[in-house]
Amino acid sequence: MLRSAALVLALALCLPLPASGSGVAAVSLDTAMVRVPAGSHLPLYANAGARIAVPAFEIDPFPVTRRDFAAFVRESPQWRRSRINPAFAGARYLDGWRGDLSFGTPHDALRPVTQVSWFAARAYCAAAGKRLPTTAEWEYVAAASEAETDASRNGRFIADVLRTYGARRTPVAPIDGAAPNRFGVHHLHDRSWEWVSDFNSVLMGDDSRGASGHDRRLYCAAGSIGATDPGNYPAFLRYGFRAGLEGRTTADNLGFRCARSIP
């Protein structure tokens, strides 16, 4: 009884806080989707030469922010923190938010939203007429440095990305317009890990809980057997992260962005 009273009080206190744009520092970012030309991606685990063709598609230039996600849950109550179906997200879903519609202080508005499950991310994209990118799409776009569209064999770029991963902290820093990659996409490496639509089909076998099938390659011989590029530590880290995920997993450093097929 005391607890529910406290909850009501908390909600009352939190609701007046800005849930969307008001009070947020004026940052002008062009959020229009970026068109990525057709290309290909060589998965970390693949038979020699088994590049995956990636048709042209569109992708968000920025990860989805807390402000964006607050607008979504305003329209879709079933994805609010208090109403989320436990089958669709773990206990820390939207952890750190002050209430169902309040993500925190104005300073938090442009932080990439984290502590979101794959189910929630997928629902967000669907509501916007988009979808989550595939692993191949995401890796293809993220292989671009500022100067090259494919820097996956550029030792300096790989070292930079590895250093960037090591320097990331939570809560994830707000988005800004600095340093887009060659495709014009931001923050693929310097904010959080990001959901992909097929996080489990690439690495997992019969279900997404047990380790089986391809997943095993990550443990066998230090994960190096069958890897197409043992020197690409950042890719190992991403594949390793995805291997630990279930659809309902959420984490402080796991967010997402949306993509869209070009008809």
Partner: peptide
Amino acid sequence: PGGGAEASLVVPGH
């Protein structure tokens, strides 16, 4: 198998 490695993979906060 794996000395426990496969059975214990946990993402942050898990």
